[in-house]
């Protein structure tokens, strides 16, 4: 979780990732940011993120991203 927050901070340092749970819905993250985060996640956790995972619910908060990473790590 800490590493995920670090990655997110690298993209938007001004956001409070403890509280914010509408990163996509509030357009805090645009498509460029999401793909940047996805690239970092794939490198960091050695996971494969595909088109079916690219839905707002998976990227709205640090916790949602952490859940996605855990699911993909188990596969």
């Amino acid at each position: 979780m800490d590493r995920i927050k670090e990655i997110l901070k690298g993209v938007h340092p001004e956001v409070d990732y403890e509280k914010e749970d509408h990163l996509i819905d509030k357009r805090i993250f645009d498509s460029f940011d999401v793909v940047t985060v996805v690239g970092e996640l794939m490198d960091e956790f050695d996971i494969e993120i595909t088109a079916e995972h690219m839905i707002p619910e998976n990227f709205n908060s640090a916790e949602a991203i952490s859940r996605l990473v855990s699911t993909l790590e188990e596969e």
Partner: peptide
């Protein structure tokens, strides 16, 4: 089937990084 597979391709991601 075209955009995401290319966008999430590791070579493109590495190049971007």
């Amino acid at each position: 089937y075209i955009f995401y597979p290319l966008s999430l391709n590791k070579s493109i991601i590495r190049f971007s990084k």
